[in-house]
């Protein structure tokens, strides 16, 4: 059976098609202003790409912040369950997941059977999320995609002490004014994310092996900083950003 997962996040929307549990295709687009339209558009696009029509899809689950606005989905499931399911789909050994998405970060611990045992999410603050990185990329005038590679060249990561995105941005601006090297500032930003997210994950007690999921996992600098802060190696799939949508498509094949 063909199933679809639609993950409408705060920054990007993801869609995945699975056929009898086998990965067919995934797609990422900006969410923009209208979450419902974003979900509908990406679903139509992925069907078109695959040469399929909507009635070929046997089950659809929506997840992410906009999950309830996806009217064509059979049901809505939270990101927690979908990232857990997606991580296990990508790597059956995984016992813990750290997801850093656009506006939130979460840590999830699974039991041996892959069921969610417990989870934690960041509080009402965007520090340590994808949005935080976007703000910093703008301040540094660096393409966000280059952040990972640049930070790995840092000799001496700068120290970003503020917990607040807005104040951290002014810290970064004063570091720029002082002539600090870009690589060091970026590495410092990654370390501040690593220490913030790891504090939340440590509170739950991470059980290895740990997988990092979400769009921010594409940034090798954050992966390294978070792994160091957690003192655990992190597994990262090339499909990290699609994890939530993969989990949703996977769960769509099962009865509620």
């Amino acid at each position: 059976m063909l199933t679809a997962g639609i993950d409408v996040g705060s920054i990007s929307t993801k869609a995945v098609l699975l056929e009898d549990g086998r990965f067919v295709r995934g797609r990422v687009a900006f969410t923009g202003y209208n979450a419902e339209a974003a979900g509908r558009r990406i679903f139509e696009e992925i069907l078109q790409e695959s040469g399929l029509t909507e009635d070929a899809v046997g089950g659809i689950i929506a997840t992410g912040y906009g999950r309830k606005s996806v009217s064509f989905a059979g049901r809505a499931v939270t990101e927690i369950l979908c990232h857990a399911a997606g991580a296990r789909y990508l790597d059956a050994e995984i016992r813990s997941v750290v997801d850093i998405g656009g506006q939130d970060s979460k840590a999830i611990v699974l039991d041996a059977d892959g069921r969610v045992k417990t989870f934690a999410m960041n509080d009402k603050c965007a520090a340590g999320t994808g949005r935080f990185l976007e703000v910093m990329a703008r301040a540094l005038e660096v393409d966000l995609d280059l952040f990972g590679a640049l930070s790995l060249q840092a000799e001496n990561p700068a120290r970003i002490s503020s917990l607040c995105t807005v104040f951290a941005e002014s810290e970064v601006i004063s570091l720029i004014a002082r002539g600090e090297k870009r690589e060091n500032i970026i590495a410092g930003i990654h370390e501040s994310i690593g220490s913030r997210v790891s504090a939340m994950a440590r509170r739950l007690g991470m059980v290895p092996p740990v997988m990092m999921t979400g769009g921010v996992a594409k940034n090798a600098g954050v992966v390294q900083a978070l792994g160091k802060a957690l003192d655990l190696p992190l597994r990262v799939s090339p499909q990290a950003q699609l994890t939530g949508a993969i989990g949703a498509a996977f769960l769509a094949a099962r009865p509620e």
Partner: peptide, 13 residues
Amino acid sequence: SQIDTRIDAFMEV
């Protein structure tokens, strides 16, 4: 929306 997601996820667990 944050609390909504937390409660939904908790009830799933």
